[in-house]
Amino acid sequence: MRLGTAGTRSRTPAPDATTERSAISLRGVGKDFRSAAGESVALDSVDLDIDAGDFVCLLGQSGCGKSTLLNLIAGLDSPSRGSIDVGGRRVGMMFQDANLFPWLTVRGNIELALRLSGVPAREFGPRVDELLETVRLPRAASMRPHELSGGMRQRVALARTLAQDCSILLMDEPFAALDAITRDAMHDETERIWLERELTIVFVTHNVRESARLGNRVLVMAPDPGRIDSELRIGLQRPRRMEDPGVADRAAELHRRLSGRNEP
C-alpha cells in the first residue's frame, strides 16, 4: 500500500475545530484510478463531517464512488488528494459478502477478530458468547460458515466486526444479497446495536427505501466524477419500519433526486 503524494489518512486527532465533535472528517478527498483506458476520477472533491453516534447512508447508483469512499475511510485504500481523519477511532467494516473464514467455526471466526484486536485468550469464551448473544445467534458457535444461511452469516460477520470494539462501523451494501424478510430483521438488529453501542455508522446502499429506513442523514451521490450531490435529513422517529408512510415519503423524495439528475 502506497500513500498518494497529497493524500493523507490520519488516526491522530487533528487540532481542527470541526473534529471535536466529528467522528469522521474528510477534507477535499479525491481518488483517481488508473486503467488501460487512462486515468479516471472515481471520487472528486469530497468534504464531509460525520458526528459521533450518527447514522449516515451513502446512496447512489453503481459507479458513483460510494464503495471507494468507504474503502478510503476504512484505510483499505489511500486517497489521491485530501485528508481523512477518524480521530484515532477504531474502524470496523462489513461487506456485501460476509467473508467468514471457511476453515473456522463461528466461534473461531469471532475469536480471530478478538485475537487480532489484542484481547487476551482467557477472555475469548465469555466475549464470544456475549457477541453471539448481541447478534441473536446464541447456539451457532460450533457451526461452520457453509452450514449457515445468508442472514446468519451476516449476523456472524457483524459479531466479528463488533469484536474489534470499533466505534465506527462501515457497511458496504451488507444486506443487498438477503431476502426481504431477513433483510428487515437485519435492519432491526442494526438499528438496535447502533443505539446500544453508540456506534457511528456509514452505510452504503443503492436501495432508496433502505437508506430512508436506516439513516439519520442520506447523502445522495452522483457519478462522473463521483461526488456527494445532495443531502436529505430523514428526521423520523425510531424504531422505523420499511413500510412506514414517513419512510415511503422520504424514499420518494430521494428517488426524485436520483432520477431528476438525469433530466436536463
Partner: peptide, 8 residues
C-alpha cells in the same frame, strides 16, 4: 480485505 480490516 476482511482480514486487513480486522487488523491482520
Amino acid at each position: 480485505r476482511t482480514a486487513t480490516v480486522l487488523g491482520a
